[in-house]
C-alpha cells in the first residue's frame, strides 16, 4: 500500500515538475500584467499576422496531406503493388528526421543555389524565404500522420461493404463518398488533428526556409522566439498561451475521437 502510494507520488511529481508547473507558470506570467496587457500583446499587428499565417499554412498542409494520406492509405491496403513496402517506409521517414535537416534539404533543392533554384528563379518563382517554402516544409513534416492513422482503419474495415455497394450498382466515386469515407472517418479525423497540431507548432523546419520577416514570413512559433530574443517575454508568453490553448484543444479532440473510435 505504502509502496503503491509512493510510486504514484513519484510519477505524479515527475509530471508536475516537468510538465504541469512550467505550463502553469507561463499562464500565470502571461496574465501577470492584467488582462488588458494580454489583450494588447495578443492584438499587436505582428502577432495577429503571425497567428493568421500559422493557421493558413496549417490549413493548406492539412488539406494537402489529407487528400494524399487517404488516397495513399487506400492504395497501400487495397491495391498493393511491388514496392509498396518501400513507399510505406518513405512515408514514415519525416518522423525520424531532425527539423533543421528537413529545412536544409528543402533549401538544397528549392533555394537559390539549389537543384531547382536557377530554373525557379528564371521563371520568377521564389520558394525559399517565402510562403511556398514554408508550406512545403510544413507539408513535409506532417506528411505521415493521416497515412499512419488511416491505414490500420482501412485494413480493419475490410472491403466487403465496398463490394456490396458495387454489386448494388454504385459507381466507384459514389462508393468512395458514401461507403469508404464514412467508414474510415474516425481515422481521418484523428490524422487531421495530429497534422493540424504539428503544423501549427512546427518551428525548426519552417524557420530554416522562412525569411522570418515580422508581418511577412513569420509564423506564431517564430514570433514566440523573436519576442523572447527581443526581451519582450510578455509577448512571447501570450503567443505561447495561444499555442498552448490550441494544443489543449487538440488534446481534447484527440481524446474525443479516440473514445468515439473505440465505441
Amino acid at each position: 500500500m505504502i509502496a503503491r502510494f509512493s510510486l504514484r507520488l513519484v510519477a505524479l511529481g515527475y509530471l508536475a515538475v516537468l510538465l504541469v508547473l512550467p505550463v502553469a507558470w507561463i499562464v500565470w506570467s502571461a496574465f501577470g500584467g492584467g488582462v488588458d496587457a494580454v489583450w494588447r500583446s495578443a492584438t499587436a499587428p505582428y502577432a495577429v499576422h503571425a497567428l493568421l499565417l500559422s493557421v493558413l499554412i496549417a490549413v493548406i498542409a492539412v488539406i494537402a496531406n489529407t487528400v494524399f494520406g487517404v488516397v495513399t492509405a487506400l492504395m497501400i491496403v487495397r491495391h498493393p503493388f511491388p514496392g509498396v513496402s518501400i513507399l510505406n517506409a518513405f512515408v514514415d521517414l519525416p518522423l525520424g528526421l531532425s527539423p533543421v535537416v528537413v529545412g536544409l534539404s528543402l533549401v538544397l533543392v528549392y533555394g537559390a543555389t539549389g537543384w531547382l533554384g536557377p530554373w525557379l528563379t528564371a521563371h520568377g518563382i521564389t520558394v525559399i524565404f517565402s510562403l511556398p517554402g514554408m508550406i512545403l516544409a510544413t507539408v513535409f513534416v506532417t506528411l505521415p500522420f493521416v497515412v499512419r492513422e488511416v491505414v490500420p482503419v482501412v485494413r480493419e474495415v475490410g472491403s466487403e461493404q465496398e463490394e456490396a455497394s458495387r454489386t448494388l450498382g454504385a459507381t466507384a466515386w459514389q462508393t468512395f463518398w458514401r461507403i469508404t469515407l464514412p467508414s474510415i472517418r474516425a481515422g481521418v479525423i484523428y490524422g487531421v488533428v495530429l497534422t493540424m497540431a504539428r503544423a501549427l507548432g512546427e518551428f525548426g523546419t519552417v524557420i530554416v526556409v522562412a525569411g522570418n520577416i515580422p508581418g511577412v514570413t513569420q509564423t506564431l512559433t517564430m514570433y514566440v522566439e523573436a519576442e523572447f530574443q527581443n526581451f519582450d517575454p510578455r509577448g512571447a508568453y501570450v503567443a505561447s498561451l495561444e499555442l498552448a490553448v490550441l494544443a489543449i484543444l487538440t488534446l481534447v479532440l484527440m481524446n474525443v475521437v479516440r473514445r468515439k473510435g473505440v465505441a
Binding site: 497540431a197 507548432g201 518551428f203 512559433t221 514566440v224 505561447s240 494544443a247 487538440t250 484527440m254
Partner: peptide, 12 residues
C-alpha cells in the same frame, strides 16, 4: 496530459 508534449509546439 501525457500527450501534451506531442501537442505543444516545441518552442513553447
Amino acid at each position: 496530459l501525457i500527450d501534451l508534449p506531442f501537442a505543444l509546439p516545441t518552442i513553447v
